[in-house]
Design a protein around this nucleic acid. Sequence first.
DNA 1: GTCAAATTCCCCACTTTTCCCCACGCGACT
DNA 2: AGTCGCGTGGGGAAAAGTGGGGAATTTGAC
Lengths: 147, 147
Amino acid sequence: MPGFKGQAENSVDSKGRVTVPSKMRKALNPEAEKSFTITRGFEECVHLYPMDRWREMEEEFAQLNPFNRETRHFMRTVLRWADEVSLDGQGRIKMPPRLVEFSGIDGTAFVIGSLDHIEIWDPDTFDDYLNEQPADYETVAERVMTV
Amino acid sequence: MPGFKGQAENSVDSKGRVTVPSKMRKALNPEAEKSFTITRGFEECVHLYPMDRWREMEEEFAQLNPFNRETRHFMRTVLRWADEVSLDGQGRIKMPPRLVEFSGIDGTAFVIGSLDHIEIWDPDTFDDYLNEQPADYETVAERVMTV
DNA sequence: GTCAAATTCCCCACTTTTCCCCACGCGACT
DNA sequence: AGTCGCGTGGGGAAAAGTGGGGAATTTGAC
């Protein structure tokens, strides 16, 4: 089963609904049953995990030590922003208002397929993010992909 | 069975009743039979454990060495604050007055799903907690999730 | 032991939000 | 030119959260 890839710029209507690009919907595992966990990602974006993948994440979280202060801070952040959403008949999800606000989205969402999850950005925020990067693509690639 | 996640800001009425968010109620194991153990948590919050999960915790406590001074202190703290509560027909629990006072809750409760348990905070106290955190989310995530 | 007061429990009613269904427009491919 | 798939918008039904009242049970005092 292939991972998520590609990008799209879709509208976010007044009810906070965003269409999940059809190509990404086709990459969904039937096991996920059209439902996702949506939560805060890194660098002002929102992460969308298909249910089957989220289950695995939960198991990883459950292994962490709850008596460690930083673990608690981490868990509280990931989990309190998390919410369960499902595709409606039109292939859309409803973004919780607090995640719309967090990501700075206003009318338009930039959707990126990212293997096991989908990222949702405000288009302008994503541009800024790209411009902030100190190293160019080739340099980063070399560092990341060199063992 | 999915863990608890998400957040809500629900009212605490004059009788000390708080609605457990419906999404969290749906994540309950039928085995828990709508009853919980409520007790003192860490950092001025209150913890709510579904009965089935609390049973497991009790077994873990029973493994501890009762001839160790700190073990005794730990057990006395967890257990003396603990109380059993159940959902009413509207999906609410009644918070024991001493836990309302302990957490500083006054009219509004901030409820957070945290996998195997639910956390209940005073909203202002939770804000303070967040502001006290020395490291940001990205940094903490990298430290916690890097093996 | 009895009564009064307070607390708990359970039921009903209201308001707001959420969810689900239906209908439309655009573009691409046949 | 028609059809199919995809993305977009709105309206009505259902559910979630909130507040209050009355019966039953417990607590404490006399």
